[in-house]
Amino acid sequence: MSRANLALIVLIGLIATLPLFGGAYALRLGTMACMYAIFALSWNVVGGFAGYPSFATAAFFGFGAYASGVLLGAGLPLWLAVIVSGVAALIAAGALGAALLRLRGHYFAIASLSLVEVLRELVNNATDLTGGGMGLNIPLAAGSGIMADALFFFYAMWILMLATALTVMWVAGSKLGFGLACIRQNETAASMVGLNTTLYKSLAFALSACFVASAGGIYAAWVHYIDPSDVFDILYSVKPIVMTLIGGLGSPLGALCGALVYLGLEEVVWRNYIQIHTGVLGLLIVMLLLFLPHGLVSLRLARLFGKAKHV
């Protein structure tokens, strides 16, 4: 295992000790951190490894939230609903990817963005199933109190983050990851050496969807009420991109660090500059990207280990 992967696992292990130090507020932040990390790690597969800037994260998140919400309403246990949502997203994204990923660059970004809007409108109009604009109430999971509930959802999200990180690490070191790196660098040459680019890109898109959809399922059960403008919020598409860029494009460790830093910034700025918090946050992000274009992970590699490595 490479040092970066080891650091990633250690960091995830540290996050698991959070309940020892904090109360309900810290647990809420911790749950959000795990969710953001799932977003960033997932986006990194299609955006970082394959080089396709996807804006579809919000679509997968909303899809997972609604799929799980409806399944939970039908009486399924949470773990089953979350797994079913993830698998459904995997298959749907794989199929959609085969069509969408024929587009490149900006065209792909716009097309993936439209996916969010299409799903939002579908959910808005399928009133019988989803409650439309009225939103969807999700039955309470069998929790025994506020702290127990917070603890349960924190660890649910944490386990999903661990699964995401392990999958992403496996992808990075596998034939799939190698192929995605080829596609990012030169897609024409990649197909010329016998790489089925459509298949690989679809797999990347599908992998970037399934954990995000599962996270949507846990989120829905956590907040008990979802509506289209909440879970199909376009910010859910933009944030993972910013996190990954802060952390370092293409690096799973960078994606996780980026998610934590981003959440920290968001929280600190929101608390101190309530009137102008989005403006200040935007400024900070611009500064970070301007002075650290290769992300936090480039600092680490340059200073501590001397030699930069890709993938």
Binding site: A181, C182, Q185, N186, T188, A189, A190, M192, H310
Partner: peptide
């Protein structure tokens, strides 16, 4: 004719 390497590899 115009070489197509994977430049970062």
């Amino acid at each position: 004719q115009i070489v197509q390497p994977f430049a970062e590899f």
